[in-house]
Amino acid sequence: MSITVKNISYHYDNPGSEHSGRQVLCDISVSFDRDSFTAVIGPTGSGKSTFIQHLNLLLRADQGDILYDGESIYAQGYDRKKLRSRVGLVFQYPEYQLFETDVLSDVSFGPKNLGLPEDEVRKRASQALLQVGFSEADFHRSPFELSGGQKRRAAIAGVLAMQPEYLILDEPAAGLDPAGRRELFDMLGELHKKGGVGIILVSHSMDDVAKYADRLIVLNEGRILYDATPAEVFSHGKELESIGLDVPQAAKAAQMLRNRGISLPEGLITMEQVKTAILDHFG
């Protein structure tokens, strides 16, 4: 159940558009497995969203191949529908796509479309809502009564109810308040810890990816610049800044302290790590 991306390239091709002909992805090779919580980071326009849309065939590469479970998703007769139920994609601002009268019906929409029997549909939808932190008392609330963070999680439940093997999210915390943001990332962290779902997400928050992801893929101008652990990637502060990214605030604080002669170990990227290191230093 791995995803293997082999040398894919992609360019926009809509006549009349200013972007037409622009190369967005350039010879990308990478593979994913279900154990990983991967964050894809990169400056605006680096190809992040375009890249993840290739993973469930919303976009098709001009060159190269993508294998799901060893089988080319570009092969003739490949079952796209099945792929999309295995590789679930959550768009930016997914709550705009909520439309049913209550939360449970909304989340049921996907599994119902798979043609599953009614009780199985309900079972999956309830399970997905519980997974994203809803209680049964909330199942019959209107999506429009929910807070921004709850709406976002309901929309993610809609994808989880398909029981995907991979959950792919495009900037899932954009526009959420701090509490909503933390709830959302904690929920994704839980999902990952329980196992069974590989998580791949696009984010602009270096602090969040430092805390939650175990692998970072850095895209710049349609190419992979780094593919490593967060600690390794964030050791390249200067390079990251030169392409529009940054290191987490914790890493910055640690570096400022080192520059002032306070000896802290290298590779600190979360506030928790910096706190422990400072306390050890003064211990």
Binding site: D177, P178, A179, G180, R182, D207, Q249, A250, A253, M271, V274, K275, I278, L279
Partner: peptide, 18 residues
């Protein structure tokens, strides 16, 4: 209120508590 401290303030607070 669903908000939090800036990270530096959060870290300072935890260091104080320690």
């Amino acid at each position: 209120l669903g908000l939090e401290l800036p990270q530096a303030a959060q870290l300072a607070q935890e260091l104080r508590q320690a």
